[in-house]
């Protein structure tokens, strides 16, 4: 549970309504960041916003003023292409100034095209080659146990990413070694670069697969804070020897109507007029929150 060094009082957001407003603001930042960068992955960034917000403002034990605090929880964005959302959340949490967000993918920026701790040391691992995050998370969870610590490791994976075979090596390992201090969140937005998973290589039934590998699974609506927060808290508190997989059903491109459920927006940056349209839609939505 929380200690004084946990999510700082200033960062913890109790109100669900406030979290919803935050998610909306983050989506605007994500669209602007990727638009300014001229390249990037809007679809999978927009689908993970509530999941990341719940982590950084309610669940993760971390301290933005002391990013290397040894007892912090670890978060690995295995789907590294979704980093604009992570950068926006970490800016909101205080790891970097909001002004840095406009440097995404630019020479010298800490905000590299995929997560790179050489430039942004508060990141826990470099990712971008899919399928490695759960294994790295297994290593971190083992380290926590060997050191008799109670910090937790969270890994966010894409659903297309789950097609990589290494995930299942890691899934076997985590269950066999009873890594209850490891949680995998699958951003299940049903779309990968070339199209819908069901038309490429379907991973369903995803929860049943992880269950068969010995994991606890929780299936939730990944955009509903009232489901996301309890699922993450359940996973964080687990003491029964089972790692947790949260299958979070999400919508790719969530919040921008012309991007939603459209594979075209996996890895294409919006043009200035599209940025303006997306921001206008999100600002209109904000008024109803």
């Amino acid at each position: 549970m929380s200690t004084t060094a946990d999510v700082t009082t200033a960062n913890r957001i109790e109100s669900i309504a406030e979290l919803k407003r935050l998610a909306n603001r983050l989506r605007i930042e994500i669209i602007k960041m990727i638009g300014t960068a001229g390249s990037g992955h809007p679809g999978g960034s927009l689908s993970e916003v509530e999941l990341l917000s719940a982590l950084y403002f309610r669940v993760l034990r971390h301290n933005p003023k002391d990013p290397q605090w040894p007892d912090r929880d670890r978060f690995i964005l295995s789907k590294g292409h979704g980093c604009p959302a992570l950068y926006a959340v970490m800016a909101e949490a205080g790891y970097i100034d909001h002004s840095v967000l406009s440097t995404l993918r630019k020479m010298g920026s800490p905000l590299q095209g995929h997560p790179d701790k050489r430039f942004f040391p508060a990141l826990e691992a470099n990712t971008g080659s899919l399928g490695q995050g759960i294994s790295i998370g297994c290593g971190m969870a083992l380290a926590s146990r060997l050191d008799k610590k109670d910090w937790h490791t969270f890994v966010m994976s894409g659903d297309g990413e789950i097609q990589e075979g290494q995930n299942w090596e890691a899934a076997m390992f985590a269950a066999y070694h009873k890594l209850e201090n490891l949680t995998v969140i699958v951003d299940y937005n049903h779309i990968q670069l070339d199209g819908f998973l069901k038309d490429i290589l379907d991973v369903s039934p995803l929860a049943q697969k992880f269950e068969a590998f010995g994991w606890r699974t929780l299936e939730i609506d990944g955009h509903d804070f009232n489901q996301v927060i309890p699922a993450l808290e359940t996973a964080r508190a687990a003491k029964d020897g089972k790692p947790t997989c949260i299958v979070a059903n999400t919508v790719k491109g969530k919040g921008v109507s012309f991007m939603e459920n459209n594979p075209e927006w996996h890895g294409v940056a919006p043009k200035p007029d599209q940025v303006a349209a997306a921001v206008a839609e999100l600002e209109a939505a904000a008024k109803k929150l």
């Binding site: 040894p70 670890r74 826990e124 691992a125 490695q132 294994s135 790295i136 998370g137 297994c138 290593g139 971190m140 969870a141 083992l142 380290a143 926590s144 060997l146 050191d147 290494q166 890691a170 390992f173």
Partner: peptide, 12 residues
């Protein structure tokens, strides 16, 4: 290989 990397990144 990745587990070893994770252990190292966590200080082992």
């Amino acid at each position: 290989v990745s587990i070893a990397a994770g252990l190292a990144l966590a200080g082992k």
